[in-house]
Design a protein around this nucleic acid. Structure first.
Length: 466
RNA sequence: GGCCCCGUCGUCUAGUGGCCUAGGACGCAGCCCUCUCAAGGCUGAGAUCGCGGGUUCGAAUCCCGCCGGGGCUACCA
């Protein structure tokens, strides 16, 4: 096995700053971090900003923010520096140019002057003839004269490309099926399949752990590493994809759940999200489903990684998040709830926590439950019986100490006196006070509100004392 | 189209030839608890293991074919 256990293990993620921070980036980062931590290795963050059209600096910030939120911190990166700086590909252009020049000088690559239109025509032609498309090598054999704009193409040497995937075992590709591909675009920027292996080699990455969509890219990158005379990484690991609920690939337009920041906004705990993400691609072989991060570092192995993509399921995420929320102690829950309840002071949040804890699939759900504390609900219309119960309750609440236990006792006395079930008394109170049919237990519902405000809402519905 | 990966309850999965009348989790249903909603407890429904052929005394597990899904096939990454 290629997983030698020494401190020189180096892994990386290479996200592109072309939009919001991606769920997939989080997932890949998690696998990389687990592996790095387990083997005392180094986790590198490299920014893959070679697409001048779509790349934006603010998107890079979003990636940092998202990964920091999840606690998936890196050892080397554009913002932290390190022995292989710079870590932004746009700042490594000279390096790629040098490598391209080397390939050119060695006759392992050549300039291609074909226009996109010409290439398109070639491709369409092949398609029409039902022939697998490969670049014609026109510019290798018979380049058009008088053109200045060019790309650099790698001359695919042919033969089998074989490598070990930590998840699927020995993989073998026939490079004869791969046409000469572009390594340097006409704007001078490297393509992904060029920049990535050059960086992996020069940054001495030992284990390339990435999404399964890159499995077919691996032979391209390996051929380049070989041609450049670098040693290959020890191994590759292609992790299963996260699919949309309908089994299709997630797209930015149709699938907001791709946006990492959505989870923070909704009040998913970062540790719960990580726990869910790991379950989408791996299991320990036992029935354990909830793990601390350290347990994951301990338990994670590639041989238990799933081979097929998994569908994203909000229900399971909600359950896991609820489990984590319930496991938080009161102070910690209150602290995490604060950003979601800006209208409430800390003391009120703290008093509400016991009533909230088992009722939150996500932190943002606290808003629905506590909204009545800062907004005045419209008074409900109640039938005469309900109004009668309300009046009895108001009477019972007179002079009680304004805290849950005392309120509860007082109300129960009223309930007993009524000879009816508690709901007959509690529901009208709930509706009058919150405007809703769902709220925390009635004693908390009342106690969280200042006494005079609570009583005023009751009076509004049932009328004042006689 | 070509190459590659994958295919067990609705979903995530356990399972590597007999322990599988296929196990767990989420979700769902019912009951209990209960002031509503949750949480918690118990019970239950739910998968002829994509389909068809083999191999074998015996296959979800091995082989072949087919079908289905996904990825790559870009001067995107």
């Amino acid at each position: 096995m290629a997983v030698s256990d020494h401190a020189s293990i180096r892994v990386r993620i290479a996200p592109s700053p072309t939009g919001f921070a991606h769920l997939g980036t989080a997932s890949t980062a998690l696998y990389n971090v687990l592996f790095a931590r387990k083997h005392g290795g180094t986790f590198v963050l490299r920014v893959d900003d070679t697409d001048v059209e779509r790349n934006r600096p603010e998107y890079e910030q979003l990636i940092y923010e998202g990964l920091h939120w999840l606690g998936l911190d890196w050892d080397e990166g554009p913002d932290k520096g390190g022995p292989d700086a710079p870590y932004r590909q746009s700042e490594r252009l000279d390096l790629y140019k040098q490598h391209a020049a080397r390939l050119l000088a060695d006759g392992k690559a050549y300039r291609c002057f074909c226009t996109p239109e010409e290439l398109d025509a070639e491709r369409k032609q092949a398609q029409a003839e039902k022939r697998p498309y490969r670049y014609s090598r026109r510019c290798l054999n018979n380049p058009p004269a008088g053109r200045t704009e060019f790309t650099v193409r790698f001359k695919v040497p042919g033969g089998e490309v074989t490598f070990t995937d930590l998840i699927r075992g020995v993989m073998s590709f026939d490079s004869g099926l791969i046409g000469d591909f572009i390594v340097v675009k006409s704007d001078g920027f490297p393509t992904y399949n060029f920049a990535s292996p050059v960086d992996d080699a020069t940054m001495r990455i030992t284990h390339v752990i990435r999404g399964e969509e890159h499995l077919s890219n691996t032979p391209y990158q390996l051929m380049l590493i070989d041609a450049l005379g670098y040693p290959r990484p020890d191994a590759y690991a292609h992790m299963p994809l996260i699919l949309a609920a309908d089994g299709s690939k997630m797209s930015k337009r149709k699938h907001p759940e791709l946006n990492l920041m959505l989870y923070r906004e909704q009040g998913y705990l970062p540790e719960a999200l990580l726990n869910y993400l790991i379950l989408l691609g791996w299991n320990p072989g036992t029935s354990q489903e909830i793990f601390t991060f350290n347990e994951l570092v301990e338990l994670f192995t590639f041989d238990r990684v799933q081979h097929g993509g998994a569908r994203f399921d909000w229900e399971k995420l909600n359950w896991i998040n609820g489990e984590y929320i319930r496991a938080l102690d009161d102070e910690e829950l209150a602290r995490r709830l604060r950003p979601f309840l800006p209208k409430l002071d800390e003391a009120t949040i703290m008093r509400a926590v016991p009533a909230l804890k088992t009722r939150l699939p996500k932190l943002a759900a606290a808003v629905d439950l506590l909204e009545y504390l800062w907004t005045d609900p419209p008074p409900p219309t109640l039938d005469p019986d309900a109004v009668e119960r309300l009046r009895a309750a108001m009477e019972a609440l007179r002079n009680v100490q304004w805290e849950p236990a005392a309120i509860h006792d007082a109300l129960m006395r009223a309930v007993e006196a009524s000879g009816l079930g508690p709901n007959k008394t509690f529901m009208p109170i709930r509706q009058a006070v919150t405007g809703k049919k769902i709220s925390p237990p009635i004693d908390y519902t009342l106690a969280l509100l200042p006494r005079d405000v609570a009583m005023a809402r009751l009076v509004r519905v049932a009328g004042g004392p006689d």
